[in-house]
Design a binder for these strands. Structure first.
Lengths: 226, 226
DNA sequence: AGGCTAAGCGGACCGTGGTCCAGTTTCATT
DNA sequence: AATGAAACTGGACCACGGTCCGCTTAGCCT
């Protein structure tokens, strides 16, 4: 299996490393047919790079994903990798993009309790569990893809999740500072934290799950006995 | 002003980069007279390095703190910097060490409401505010000193803070999973998050402060009107 | 004082992320 | 089909973090 040829951000020319990267664009999740306008050769190379990266991960773990190694494995110049993905983080993120889109689609338009239709509290609870397990599955990659501190929270995909949480929160506790509260909730689902708790502190996943339910209950002032 | 000549971890020989770094040692905060046994020349160089690093920060910002630059500025070999501080992170952390110890001393043995004497809830509230403002003061350095994701939570100084929070929580909500809850609370004080909220989202500090009080109130099931 | 040894030193060396730009390819236009 | 410009390519190049190892030196022991 190889990672789909989709990505969340098209990189402008090159000269300038462009900061804003692109707005969240919550609404067109499953629509965009890959990179809209990408020259044929560019698209081909992109696919080869992603495939090569995936192969390298499978063989040598995330640490084996060196920009040079990927370029070599895809029989492409190093510059091309950087042009396409911006930096190492961009490449790793692209690898995660498929599942990120999946998750987004699930809670935006999927079946309840994750998707619309269930009461907000239910959705919020389900959301945390979903994120928790998704992260747990791809921990290494998630960890390695973590950008430098300053950008951790501004990444579009992270923003999208947080915005969704804020939206749910507003329906549950309209009087609270939901922006802030949503940040806290998201912070408690940080892959690095999950890694620490499960791998370094030895907590089982079900404890994190209970923790999430408890946390949500406390923050929203609802009841929960677990 | 230059950063005091203290540091939280003595580095073993060199050959092995030693993982465990050192236990939290919560109790001897103000006691240790700097590095206990350090050869005269080593101690001198250490001081010169810290001073040089501080100077570089003042002049060129954190980004200017290159290991080579520091070595050169201190008129010392590059290898010496690494031997003394392990890596760039260690150096940056050493720069922060003074204020970290200060904070620790304050909540372990200082006057209420931070120190013992005040009711736990009071202390917890004060604790968050203290951490908040301390981080805000040294944001750049705190950000730059943030280690790779996997170690973020295992750093002794972070552990110490979290343990303290857990202790307070146990007194306030004995039936809760205080370990987990304390992680959440600490996560909401993450320097990277503070940076994001204040510098990128433009939130004023007082809003974060209110947010903390509100968060504590909700988590502990106590009242608060702000 | 002299000598012994572990601790400390320093700078050459390496790998990796990231940049640059001259040359090449694609493709819309005619 | 020819053409021109925008987009893409590739590999030489750079800076920085980090390692290694032969040499020096502090500080103890006699």
């Amino acid at each position: 299996m190889l990672y789909a040829v989709v990505m969340s951000s098209a990189l402008p020319p090159f000269p300038k490393p462009q900061e804003p990267l692109e707005p969240p664009r919550l609404l067109e999740v499953e629509s965009a047919p890959d990179e809209p306008c990408l020259r044929a050769d560019a698209a081909r190379n992109r696919a080869r790079l992603l495939e090569a990266a995936a192969r390298l991960i499978a063989e040598h773990g995330v640490a084996g994903v060196t920009m040079e190694a990927v370029a070599a494995a895809a029989q492409v110049g190093k510059g091309t990798v950087f042009r396409r993905f911006g930096d190492r983080n961009g490449l790793l993120t692209a690898l995660l993009d498929h599942s990120a889109r999946q998750l987004q689609a699930d809670f935006l338009g999927g079946p309840p309790p994750l998707g619309p239709g269930a009461p907000p509290l239910e959705r919020l609870r389900a959301f945390g569990v979903a994120v928790l397990y998704r992260s747990a599955e791809q921990l290494d990659l998630q960890l390695a893809a973590q950008p430098e501190p300053a950008r951790r929270f501004s990444h579009p995909s992270v923003q999208a999740l947080r915005t969704h949480v804020a939206m749910l929160l507003r329906q549950i506790v309209p009087t609270a500072d939901c922006e802030l509260l949503s940040q806290t909730l998201m912070a408690s689902l940080d892959p690095a934290l999950i890694h620490h708790l499960t791998r370094q502190c030895g907590m089982p996943m079900h404890r994190l799950e209970s923790g999430w339910h408890d946390l949500v209950a406390r923050l929203t002032g609802t009841e929960w006995s677990g």
